[in-house]
Design a protein around this nucleic acid. Sequence first.
RNA 1: CGGGCUGUGGCGCAGCUUGGUAGCGCGUCCGGCUGGGGGCCGGAAGGUCGCAGGUUCGAAUCCUGUCAGCCCGACCA
Length: 578
Amino acid sequence: MLRMSTLFLRTLREDPADAEVPSHRLLVRAGYVRRVAPGIYSWLPLGVRMLAKVSGVVRAEMDAIGAQEVLFPALIPREPYEVSGRWTEYGDLLFRLRDRRGNDYLLGPTHEELFTLLVKGEYSSYKDLPVMLYQVQTKYRDEARPRAGILRGREFVMKDSYSFDLDDEGLQRSYDLHREAYIRIFDRVGMDYRIVAAVSGAMGGSASEEFLAPAPTGEDTFVSCTACDYAANTEAVQLRAPEPVDPESQPAIQVLDTPDTPTIETLVAVLADLGHDVPASGTLKNVVVLLRHPDGRTEPLVVGVPGDRAVDLARLEANVAPAEVLPFDDFDRHPELVKGYIGPQRLAEKKVRYVVDPLVVTGSAWATGANEPGRHAVNVVRDRDFVPEGVVPAAEVRAGDPCGRCGAPLEIGRGIEIGHIFQLGRKYTEAFGLDVLGPLGTPVRVTMGSYGIGVSRAIAAIAEQSYDDKGLAWPRSGAPAAVHVVGVGKGDHRPVAERIAAELEARGLTVLLDDRPKVSPGVAFKDAELLGIPTTVVIGKSLADGVVEVRDRRSGDIRRVALDDAVEVVVAEVRGGG
RNA sequence: CGGGCUGUGGCGCAGCUUGGUAGCGCGUCCGGCUGGGGGCCGGAAGGUCGCAGGUUCGAAUCCUGUCAGCCCGACCA
């Protein structure tokens, strides 16, 4: 039983000055966490309870699919990350440090390398596979801009697991097991979430899905179809593209004088004056970005998107990973790139890489730059007048865009990434040479899956979905305690509260008892609301009539219950969900 | 990396323009009252005013530098 008289807790009456988002504000105010440095937090007793709650559910479900828990150090020598290439690829995101002998170390941002090495060291036969290992551990990433309190920290608690299989079918099975385990985990902690298609990003690999908790403060944008069950991170979304056309069926390319048309808007107006009725969506906007590769090499990349759409840099970057996308402004050294009048015609000859968004299909005709100041061309046709080097999703995605699966309009939402599962493949087993001997006595390269849950972030995400103007309002299944018992007043109230708390605990419920002497009822109630335990039992005035109150934090409902029935009623309420 | 804002008891803030004994609210401690919505009365503890240098008889306040933090942006050719 947690007793508030001795609980290490100080609630704040006012919002902390440095907290903006609800979860940050309330977790600090309610005394769950305290900031130590940017993106680095201490967890106080109530917060630790939440960590234990969530990680307990995670462990139970991971164990249930046969994964086994291990624990790696956070402090790791450089070599494995050198071998995988991530010592370089991770760049400034990696916390690096040196020991007294001058050897390089890092604080683990994620542990593919060590898991791969561990399995390589222990296992050597196909009979040993499949195997799934996981840990719940503190991770370190030196984020450029930590923000939103617990949501994006530099130190955070993560459950990461890894599967090792002989072949793709095995990997698919391990992936599916994790997917189902994640569904059970997030259901059990009472979170609202969506499973969305994702890009695998810097990790490499193929199939990948994210678990997003919808919340306005989320950093990820995802689309979901209004008709079918398709959902995807905008980085990974596939829109329904127009049907390809025979390039030769299009009218001939024509170059026009279009002075003072550096923007799409001005171009459309001038083209209309010239008798070419081209909407913004019929223009081809060619945006130059600078690609920075992991080895530090940079090169310009021109991306063609329909002129009525912006280039979504995050989406572009996700699809060119591990390269980074930077703004390009070095037009002086690239005279072939005529600012405001760039067209894809003959860019290839000039050794500039050119890619298009999937919306720019074969045979489509566009109004676009003519690579000369003051001139544009119309009827510029893909795969006739220009051939892009590749197709990279880069255009901004908008609400109402057609679903790639069924064509119905998509809607857009924000979400917090709380889980990510993906089929990693052989990136790390190649790097470390992880083979097992197969049934025929020949080596088989193992294939991996990698699966993460942000445990601390999930707590913040639950908070983002569970609060009101009075404070936190945890879901029944994800709360630091099941019942908050408050005894107010003099006389018998406190001993009765003690007794009820003890009885509830004897029935297996976790209880937070407000046994602080001399707190006024108002303070006790306000604190109860701020802390957010789902059910509060108040032993107060009505005790004279043999009645206590059972309050539901979320609905605000108050039930008056006979003292003798109180324990049964509360147990039923808690067990019954609600 | 760029822009904006902010550093004053544990927390939230005022004071700075116009230099002159460092204040308020909350919290904490002591005593009393109160006992169903952060209640009341009285008393108390607690601050190198981010740091360094400068101007001045005198600096939280003016000047220079520096460090730190928060927020926003990372952009459409």
